[in-house]
Amino acid sequence: MATRRSPLLLAAAILAVGLALSVVLSEYNLRLLNLSVITAIAVIGFNFAFGLAGLISLGHAAFVGMSAYTVAILTTATGWSPWAAIPMAVAGTVLFSALIGYPLLRLKGHYLALATLGLNVSFFIITANWLSLTGGTNGIPGIPQLRLHGYFISGERYFLRFGLVFLAAVAAAALAFQRSRHGRAMIAARDDEIAAAMSGIDVTRVRVAAFALSAACAAVAGALFAEHVRFIAPEDFGYVHSITYLAMLIVGGEGSVVGAILGAVLLTFLPEWLRFLGNAYLAFFAAMMLAILIFLPRGLVSLFRRRAPRRIAEGRS
């Protein structure tokens, strides 16, 4: 049962399923799976902010984009090695998120949602128009490949194996974190802010930490994305993607790492599976989303968790 799964088991399961799929899937499906793996990392990050701490951020894609652009600019314009650029991108994104977190996180509910949405829109406008730095809407092509032991990590299959290691590590760390006192402090701050303060929890700091952690995962996802597609443009990080992350988490099951992964994989593949519907596929997709929201409000993970539907599986220790 999902409730008792330890972080290491989860990591092992991700690697086993992923590696098995990397052998059997076609090149095209592998590409989608790579995208799902990268997206899953971002959604696991979003779960810190929304699932644990209850922060409705609609600017998550801007953090993904900020990191991807940092990697792209450092590797193309200044010729850094990707291995040096990635940590730099993650550190820069986390720092930025913490700095804006302090003033921003005084807002709650839909105020925070709209402020972060505005942030994401602003990020898009800047990347689409700052030609000398970002190449505008043409984006940045030719991001150099990652090299490991002198070999390029090229081709969908090899990249998948590489990405899976990141996903497994992030998922295991997220699960362990969620069960730790820090994870509990985040859940407490969301459940009852005043009771949390009365339990000695520094609610502001916990919120900023959740926000920064979510940005850290987003940054890892962004760096991987830049290295995977090797060509990035502003529309890869529009606010629509932020809303998609929220949708993935709610469909998968908020507050759950497994739910975050399920939601990311399902909503990445679903549009492709619906291709046969032609132009109608997005309409059908939206109708399905509505059905899930109405009939399965606690997400897909609640299907596996009938006995204690009110509890957060991974919150348990």
Binding site: I56, H110, A247, A286, L290, L293, P297
Partner: peptide
């Protein structure tokens, strides 16, 4: 539903 679900619900309707 919670605020976030409502947000996604109206987004889905918008896409539809």
């Amino acid at each position: 539903s919670p605020v976030a679900t409502m947000i996604i619900g109206t987004v889905a309707i918008g896409i539809l």
